[in-house]
Nucleic acid binder design. Structure first.
Lengths: 231, 231
DNA sequence: TCGCTGCTGCCATTATCTGACAGTAGACCG
DNA sequence: CGGTCTACTGTCAGATAATGGCAGCAGCGA
């Protein structure tokens, strides 16, 4: 099943776009189903046509943004993925994020040609009903604090039911099957801590930035917990 | 001096973008230096890969303007919703749909202004790890059958472990916390049935359409089960 | 009605494309 | 410093994708 070159080049462009970090030629070759030699030829072709692909020995290839991409539509599979994902968000996340999911879908639908919009409307991928355990925590406030790197003052009921007050540096929100967890650096414990949002009885933003940067915290937490980056 | 197809296709896209009004195929053929017959093939290739080209008899070809124009941007909330949803799909669904989620996100990212793309990269909404119970069912095949309204021949192991063979009319796929369920009309039982995909030991498409329409089946099933439409 | 145009099937010829092997050079790590 | 990973180039014969011409059908506009 060898894909002809003409169709492969556009695929390769999209593949490169998918990776944000350098990819080795060998990997790209495997993914597009050609030999390494041919991949080098493909890359050269794309570069000759103006694609801004950088290749570095020992590192890999990366596509610099800014290359005017062909106006590509979504494939059926991609639309179904977006619909399914948005439906899950609409059911699982808090109401603001849920509204965001619906709005985003509506905007995408607005620019879709009729036949693809049909796919969107008729999508028959359904999500189960995660039991929407709201809790009284204001997720929108937490997300805002995360984006702004603001310190939060928390009233939190721990596993043993004891109410504690803490200042924390929130940097991520985790969505699990039935619980939502805020991940933060806890000033009290001087360590990373997970806070189930349904146990947060109050959260107040101090509007003060915490001293460390969010991506760094996220990275350290990942390494400590052994959690790989998400796509 | 014939330019190889692989290099010509991207050129053709650029050429189409230059024109704002419909262009005849003959003109495009002359401009790219190929025969009319070949030009038709080129257009078909581009469309097959998702390029948004419209052709009308008696008029010509026109490339629909960039599918996500500046006025229609996403808000932070919408982007986070899309990212979170896609991450969930990437973890939960089968590999093809997962790839679709990542690809769609990459396409969206490509048309986002730099500051919003930042949001996309730095999104700190994480999803838990649904245990990817693959099963041996080919979800891609099932989705295809659903879209085409094709009858499936199933080898299915029911709750008591008994292996049965059935012909079913699939019309929806449900994603629950830990199981995936195909929803279909079962010819054997003459009723709606749910089939856990991890219990489907084989599924073969007959390539024959079933006699009823998918939306109707979905509606009847919803009414029977009392399940409201999804957003 | 007519002309213009998009679109498809068929087929023999052509030359583009491909993989393999061999070799050079730069980047990173210990 | 050496080892490893990786980008890149040259060459060649065989595989196969691409091409153009012709013939025909269908939709659009006048």
């Amino acid at each position: 099943m060898t894909i002809p070159r003409s169709e492969r080049l556009l695929t390769l462009l999209q593949t490169l776009r998918r990776y944000r970090q350098p990819v080795s030629g060998a990997k790209l070759a495997a993914e597009t189903g050609v030999s390494l030699r041919t991949l080098y030829r493909d890359i050269a072709s794309l570069q000759a046509q103006g694609a801004f692909i950088e290749g570095e020995a020992g590192v890999g290839y990366i596509l610099r943004p800014g290359f005017m991409l062909p106006p590509m539509m979504f494939s059926q599979e991609e639309i179904e993925a977006l619909v399914l994902g948005s439906r899950w968000v609409a059911r699982t996340a808090d109401s603001r994020l849920a509204a965001g999911a619906v709005d985003a879908l509506a905007k995408i639908a607005a620019v879709l040609p009729p036949d693809l919009r049909e796919d969107l409307d008729n999508s028959t991928l359904l999500v189960g009903t995660p039991r929407r355990n709201e809790g009284n925590a204001d997720l929108a406030l937490i997300r805002k604090a995360i984006r702004a790197e603001h310190v939060l003052e928390l009233a939190y009921e721990d596993e043993r039911g004891a109410l504690t007050h803490r200042r924390v540096w929130p940097f991520a929100l985790g969505f699990f099957d039935s619980v939502r967890v805020m991940i933060a650096w806890c000033e009290l414990r001087q360590d990373f801590r997970h806070f189930r949002t349904d146990r947060i009885s109050s959260a107040v933003s101090t509007e003060k930035r915490y001293p460390r940067r969010r991506p760094v915290l996220l990275k350290e937490w990942r390494e400590k917990e052994g959690i790989p980056p998400q796509p």
